[in-house]
Computed example of a mutant assay.
Amino acid sequence: MPVLVITGTNTEVGKTVTTAAVAAAALAAGRSVAVLKAAQTGVRPDERGDADEVARL
């Protein structure tokens, strides 16, 4: 099972959108996909986070 890590050195540089695009392309190619956001700061428990945004996109 290959693992792809998407990382960036700042906020608001496109990591979430890139992750969603790569995941969508893999799904379209018939691959199984799991997206994991290991840690996220600055989001209240009742707010949607980046993993939710990837699923939405």
Rank of each mutant, 00 (worst) to 15 (best):
R56T: 06
M1W: 03
V5L: 15
P45G: 08
T18V: 14
G49P: 00
A28Y: 00
V3E: 04
T18M: 14
T7K: 02
K37W: 06
M1P: 04
A34H: 13
V17K: 06
Q40Y: 03
M1Q: 06
K15N: 05
A38L: 15
L27T: 12
A34I: 11
E12M: 02
A28M: 03
A39Y: 07
A28H: 09
V43K: 13
A26I: 00
A55C: 02
T16Y: 03
G30Y: 10
A24C: 03
D50Y: 06
N10Q: 12
N10W: 01
V5S: 14
A28L: 08
G49D: 09
V22W: 04
A23W: 02
Q40P: 04
L36P: 00
A34G: 07
A21E: 07
E47N: 00
T19M: 03
S32I: 03
T19L: 06
V22D: 02
D46H: 14
P45N: 07
V5M: 09
G8M: 04
Q40R: 11
S32H: 11
V54C: 03
A29N: 12
L36M: 12
D52K: 00
A51R: 12
G49R: 05
V13S: 10
D52F: 12
R44K: 14
A26N: 03
K15R: 11
K37C: 09
L36Y: 09
T18D: 01
G30L: 09
A28W: 00
A24N: 11
L57M: 12
A26F: 13
A24T: 09
A39R: 07
Q40H: 09
G14I: 07
A38V: 15
A20M: 04
T9L: 13
R48D: 08
D46R: 05
K37Q: 10
K37H: 09
L57S: 08
V33C: 07
A28Q: 15
V3K: 11
M1K: 05
G42C: 08
V13L: 03
E47I: 00
G42K: 10
V33G: 05
A55S: 07
E47D: 15
M1S: 11
A29C: 07
V17A: 15
A28R: 14
D46A: 12
A55W: 09
L4M: 10
G42M: 11
L57Y: 11
A20K: 06
R48H: 08
A25G: 12
L4P: 00
T7Q: 06
D46W: 15
A29T: 00
G14P: 05
V22C: 07
D52G: 13
L57Q: 13
V13Y: 04
R56M: 05
K15T: 07
R31S: 10
A21R: 09
V54Y: 03
R31G: 00
T19S: 15
A25V: 11
E53N: 09
G42H: 08
M1G: 11
T41P: 01
T16I: 04
T9A: 13
T19G: 03
V3Y: 01
L27S: 08
